[in-house]
Design a protein around this nucleic acid. Sequence first.
DNA 1: GATGTTGTTCGACGAGCGTCGTCCTACACT
DNA 2: AGTGTAGGACGACGCTCGTCGAACAACATC
Lengths: 112, 112
Amino acid sequence: MAAAILHHPAVEDLRLEGVLHALSDPIRLQMVRELARRDEPCACGTIDVPVSKSTRTHHWRVLREAGVIRQVESGTAKLTELRREDLDARFPGLLDVVLREEPASTAASLRA
Amino acid sequence: MAAAILHHPAVEDLRLEGVLHALSDPIRLQMVRELARRDEPCACGTIDVPVSKSTRTHHWRVLREAGVIRQVESGTAKLTELRREDLDARFPGLLDVVLREEPASTAASLRA
DNA sequence: GATGTTGTTCGACGAGCGTCGTCCTACACT
DNA sequence: AGTGTAGGACGACGCTCGTCGAACAACATC
């Protein structure tokens, strides 16, 4: 791993399409929500999703390159966290929408 | 066209992933923004985007099936409008984020 | 009825995405 | 040193997506 420089887009380079696309996958949405729930940098391996290890790596990269998360290496682990401030600065309200949506709750309450 | 019944998902059936995916394409984003600017049902042919006619039809269908727009036939034309209230009810703030983003403005102002 | 306008349908094509398994690298710990 | 652990790199596979042109359908208008 050799402390490779991980590519993170600058705040002003965040593209709305990219962020929306990154968030439009169920697995990635799950990852982001779990990340938000913890509210502190954590090893990405500790967030489990029903896909293989390499697929997980792929999703983390998509999220990182879209600017949704930030990752820093720490030993063998890779600490991952949401870029809350950056996202809020660039697309105010977007993260709130995504995180407010409880998986299979709002729909049910609307139906009732 | 024979007054075919156009499929529109009910409010409670709107899925966040679907809406995000529908909005993650530059062309569709452009369509939605123009639709919002006009703020009234208008023939979808009057909104021009740099793609062919059939591609346009494709994009309108994606937006409709995701629940972003509503279309009703009127003669040979097809009146199209944003489902503002439905989107605001289901995903409060999302539409605001998408519409606030002026293409190539916020980034520039942040850079300055 | 002939022509024009609006929009759809139907393949087709290339690119990208999500997924996987396997191998590899780097650090940690005994 | 040897073993374990966290994660990446690579190649492959099938599917979906965005795109197009050509042909078609329905209505309007002359």
